[in-house]
Design a protein around this nucleic acid. Structure first.
Lengths: 241, 241
DNA sequence: CGGAATGTTGATATGCCTCAACTAAAGTGG
DNA sequence: CCACTTTAGTTGAGGCATATCAACATTCCG
């Protein structure tokens, strides 16, 4: 398994040019490595964290808790992502972060991270850029969940997850990990469980994609992209695959 | 009318502690002031801007263009907002920004902004924080548009707009500017025009709010907050009103 | 093997969309 | 200033997609 700083360096390099000194500074940071269980919360709405989380392995998710106890999932996070970088500057969490998987995370103290930013602004800028790409992904989620019909919406969601996994080097023969139950998938794209079930079967029937047992299998990428009206520009990769 | 840097200083101060030197640095920046017409695009999806926009007066909006030409509005921006601060670090626009109003904007060159950040990291951090609050607003929009029934959704949207206007000192006897047609309102919360028309009338009938001729009139804030399931924590104001 | 979690399927209900007509208001030109 | 056009908003009828409720099937796991 990769060291935490390698994973983060790789991720930041997807959209930013890091200098050798930036990478060295990342390596020198002291972090805590932790294993987390499926469905375990890592931070909760209302918390005031003093560390940032980076994903080393597995998948994390952000979510809002709705009145009545339901959830709206906001984004998924794979190796290299820092799903609460915002906590560096926003005291209170406005959402929660949980593990979908058995995952491994690293914890970086805010204080040490901020000190590095003052010494190496370009590294700070890379992390800033990272948070901006996330904002772009949120914008796309607004459009996806608000303006696209269900099948298109699901296809778009699959495209995004697969595309990001591929950029992170986490795909293997057209498949990647996507450890969501259909219930959770519904709470992500904003529809009920029976509708999701039928929609997944419908996409399965096209022969383009299949989601089964936490694995997303892409069989016809071009057709899936067309189905999902997917344009990866919003992911702002320096070097699209 | 306020000078551009006063408006931006005020806005940043809503969530950040600026040092006197930060404010002075903002004042020293050279900017271009421009008036824009209603419905005029300020930047378009695909552009590579070399300036940042700050709103001095009026209301701007971000939007995605859908296949078929429709729009999904993503966020509204009032005095002090910098609706494309992200363009500092993300080359290509993944969405467009237009004026809803007759508006006045100021243009700050990326180069000069970045230079100030290197000299005054705390100012950079304030702008960073600003982009993070926007991301929190996007997350809330995902939840609002995906998980709440139409009336709640509309009420929540009204709450957010009113609350932000109040924080910016732009409300007067319970009303603020909200220059959206019902068509645009539908393209914001993700429903059709007839549905919006009925929903607006429905809220009107409760006696809590009214939207008419581009003005949002709040008659019973507490009840509106309850209707919209609104909790302003996600706006991360230092000093909630 | 039994129990829990997950996924599938069907029947019914409903909220929203589409289409369409109409009203009201605002801007335009004679 | 008034007829004309355009834009914005309202209302109604019918249909469709998705929600809800409920039963059942399947897989996973102890």
């Amino acid at each position: 398994m990769d060291a935490w700083h390698e994973v983060v360096t790789k991720k930041l390099s997807e959209h930013s040019r890091l200098l050798a000194a930036d990478i060295a500074a990342l390596e020198r940071l002291r972090v805590t490595i932790r294993a987390v269980e499926p469905h375990q919360d890592i931070v909760r709405q209302g918390d005031r964290p003093d560390v940032c989380v980076a994903v080393v392995k597995g998948v994390l998710a952000r979510y809002h808790t709705l009145q009545g106890g339901g959830r709206q999932y906001l984004s998924l996070h794979i190796a290299g992502d820092m799903p609460d970088a915002q906590s560096l500057f926003l005291e209170r969490m406005d959402h929660s972060v949980c593990a979908l998987n058995e995952a491994v995370i690293s914890l970086i103290s805010h204080a040490s991270f901020l000190k590095v930013f003052e010494q190496r602004p370009t590294l700070g800028f890379a992390v800033w850029r990272d948070t901006l790409v996330e904002a772009a992904i949120f914008r796309q989620a607004i459009t996806n969940n608000s303006a696209r019909p269900l099948l298109t919406r699901l296809a778009h969601f699959f495209c995004e997850q697969y595309y990001r996994a591929r950029a992170a080097g986490l795909t293997r023969s057209g498949s990647c990990s996507l450890p969501l139950t259909q219930t959770e998938l519904g709470e992500t794209v904003g529809v009920s469980l029976p509708s999701i079930s039928r929609a997944v079967q419908s996409l399965r029937a096209t022969g383009c994609v299949d989601l089964r047992a936490g694995t997303l299998q892409v069989r016809d990428w071009q057709r899936l992209v067309a189905l999902g009206d997917f344009n990866p520009d919003y992911l702002h990769l320096r070097d699209p695959p």
